[in-house]
């Protein structure tokens, strides 16, 4: 198992390096190099840039400086704000995004597994049809629409009751987290429900479920100890990629609900062309996603004996 984890992390580090290099190439080697120093208007920032990135040196040197800095956790300085370090921006805003993302991942997984199991168990009856209608809506409606609807709903709720049941925006306490994380988790929940339904049905049709029935096990026992466990496994494998979807979805939800997360900051940076912040956050988000995929893989390795035992050898 340990060697499996080590190998997985080795691949991860390589991937992160690839992301960092791709980002560097995109920002430096493309015509109209946005990092060309004369583009920075503010002389203080220009001086900072020059110092930080060695912009007057050849590209290979710049690359080495860039990678070395990054290894030290230094993502540079903001391009538009004096004396703002990208790493400070990240450490200030990322926890909010992580909270939002994890909460919505929790909702998405819980709902996905639950609804998926319900649809599969009530196949072709009304609960199945009803949930599947919501699922297909969930994957077809863009998340900013859900965000808007969610906000509108809060607004109406507060209007009807005349008090503030939930805050409309901001990030302060569980009340303010509820709607954004539900909205953010919705499409992932729909996707997981669909996946869970498919795997549940697939498992239900397998020979080993037939064997379990031939053994004389009760339906509940078959469901709990044979069907559910095998059906959840594919769901675990997609949790890593699901975090990617939730992260990018977070950009929109954070913007709509004015949540001070890194996603919203990223969107602002994009709109203000804060190149260094964009670069830093891209690499950071990339590294984060790679890490999450690895975590999901390792988790899967623990659940699936085929991988656990093979890796143990």
């Amino acid at each position: 198992m340990l060697s499996y984890i080590v190998k997985r992390f080795g691949m991860g580090v390589l991937t992160i390096w690839f992301i960092a290099t791709a980002t560097f190439v995109a920002m430096h080697l493309v015509p109209g190099n946005p990092l060309a120093q004369e583009k920075a208007v503010n002389p203080v920032i220009r001086a900072n840039l020059e110092k930080q990135y060695g912009l007057d040196k050849p590209v290979t040197t710049q690359y080495i400086i860039y990678i070395t800095n990054m290894l030290h956790g230094d993502f540079g300085i903001s391009y538009t704000q004096e004396n703002r370090f990208v790493k400070d921006i990240i450490s200030e805003h990322f926890p909010v995004s992580a909270e939002l993302g994890l909460l919505s991942l929790f909702f998405a997984t819980l709902g996905g597994v639950l609804f998926g199991a319900i649809t599969a168990l009530s196949r072709n009856r009304w609960p199945d049809h009803l949930i599947m209608v919501f699922v297909i809506l969930g994957v077809s409606v863009p998340n900013f629409v859900f965000a808007a609807l969610g906000q509108l709903l809060i607004l109406k709720l507060n209007g009807w009751t005349g008090t503030t049941i939930l805050p409309i925006a901001g990030w302060d306490g569980f009340g303010s987290m509820l709607m954004p994380s539900l909205v953010l988790g919705l499409s992932t929940m729909a996707y997981l429900t669909r996946l869970m339904r498919a795997t549940m049905l697939e498992v239900a049709g397998t020979d080993y479920i037939r064997t379990a029935r031939a053994k004389g096990l009760s339906t509940t026992r078959i469901f709990l100890s044979h069907q559910l466990r095998n059906a959840i496994m594919p769901v675990i494998t997609v949790l890593g990629p699901a975090i990617a979807i939730i992260t990018t979805g977070g950009f929109v939800v954070e913007s709509v609900f004015t949540i001070p997360g890194l996603g919203r900051y990223f969107v602002q940076a994009v709109q203000q062309l804060d190149y260094t912040v964009i670069m830093g956050t891209t690499v950071f988000f990339g590294a984060f996603l790679v890490l999450m995929v690895i975590v999901a893989d390792i988790l899967y390795g623990f659940v699936d004996p085929r991988i656990r035992v093979e890796a143990g050898r």
Binding site: T206, D207, Y208, R210, T211, A212, R213, A214, K215, G216, L217, H226, R229, N230, M233, V303, D304, P305, R306
Partner: peptide, 19 residues
């Protein structure tokens, strides 16, 4: 099932729970 009538299937690999 399983108590008074036992059953063996053709492909034991797929007839047993892999996990």
């Amino acid at each position: 099932r399983g108590k008074r009538i036992g059953m063996i299937f053709q492909d034991a690999m797929s007839a047993l729970n892999p996990t």
